[in-house]
Design a protein around this nucleic acid. Structure first.
Length: 300
DNA sequence: TTCGTGGGGCGACCTTCGAT
DNA sequence: ATCGAAGGTCGCCCCACGAA
């Protein structure tokens, strides 16, 4: 950030540098560790002072808050990645690895030491002092991508009735129980195979509409000899690969779109005019001298 | 298993700084 | 003088960790 070539960049150039090079460097660390909040804050602070001042030794002041700058363009920001959420999206890949890259030593270790040999335990293993800070962070993060890890029922032997994502209704614990302590007489660790006896599903009588749905769903399932398997499904599409970008968008809480988006950026997010237009519509119009200082042509 | 200690996260509040 | 954003401090809560 403090190199001479970076100092000579315009506002648009600095923005591009942050979006590509700087985000690329942080992604290396983001993909391996959950970064402490203080670290995220410091990186954001450095990027902020660089974007507005171009010189990280100066005092940090900004015309638009970093919170707004990191929003997507359609929501009024500049589309810089929110580092904290990006960090989550990168680390969720570790959970993806657990299910879909079984050859790794780390995956074997995690499965044995933390999950007791069964991947389904990921959804029900609470953080514990026995585990490291990182492992506990991952356990807490796992709920973020529960909906993407679909269990395809075959023989039903590894499919936990309450916890696995095997039905279109997601976790049955929240769908059927909704916080209630009763488990309808179905044991916590019941698998679909243990509930299927003599070709009958051993479920309590349906006393609610939701339980009727589950009864109906189970009548469509025929257990066979093949082992249950997992599939990675994002927004209804099954995929073999993990896309950090897609997961980032998924876990970002989408805010309201701004009506002026299309008049400032085109559909691909490329500026229709100059970046000043963006500052004008945000009512953060700076002085002529500041504009020249940022590397803009003021007549534009 | 319980208890004390220390550190991280986070919100509230205030100060500093630059732009107008 | 005013406004808005960043940064610092403080207190509270939660959790990890070690000692008893």
């Amino acid at each position: 950030l403090s190199s001479w070539s970076a100092k000579s960049l315009s506002f648009a150039g600095r923005l591009l540098l942050i979006k590509t090079v700087i985000t690329g460097i942080t992604t290396f660390w983001c993909s391996t560790f959950i970064l402490p909040q203080a670290c995220v804050k410091r990186i954001n602070s450095l990027c902020g002072v660089f974007l507005w001042q171009g010189n990280i030794e100066q005092h940090h002041t900004a015309r638009v808050s970093w919170e707004v700058v990191t929003k997507p363009k359609r929501e009024g920001g500049l589309g810089i990645k929110n580092l904290s959420i990006w960090n989550k999206a990168c680390c969720l890949k570790l959970i993806w690895l657990l299910f879909f890259q079984s050859g790794s030593v780390w995956v074997a270790w995690f499965k044995t030491e933390v999950l007791n040999g069964n991947l389904s335990n990921l959804w029900i293993t609470p953080p514990n002092r026995r585990y490291s800070w990182q492992v506990n962070k991952l356990l807490k993060l796992s709920s973020e991508i529960f909906s993407c890890v679909k269990l395809r029922v075959q023989n039903g032997q590894s499919c936990l009735f309450w916890s696995d994502n095997w039905s279109p209704y997601g976790s049955l614990r929240s769908y059927l129980l909704d916080g209630s302590a009763s488990t309808l007489g179905i044991p916590d660790h019941a698998t679909l195979a243990t509930l299927h006896i003599n070709n009958n599903w051993m479920l309590p009588p349906a006393r609610s509409e939701r339980l009727v749905n589950i009864h109906a769903l189970l009548t469509t399932i025929n257990l066979n000899e093949i082992e249950d398997y997992y599939e990675w499904e994002v927004d209804g599409k099954v995929s073999d690969t993990y896309s950090m970008g897609k997961i980032y968008e998924k876990i970002c809480l989408a805010g309201a779109s701004v009506p002026w988006c299309e008049s400032v950026w085109n559909k691909a997010g490329i500026p229709r005019h100059s970046f000043l237009t963006w500052l004008f519509v945000l009512n953060r119009c700076p002085t002529r001298d500041r504009i020249r200082g940022w590397g803009f042509q003021t007549d534009t």
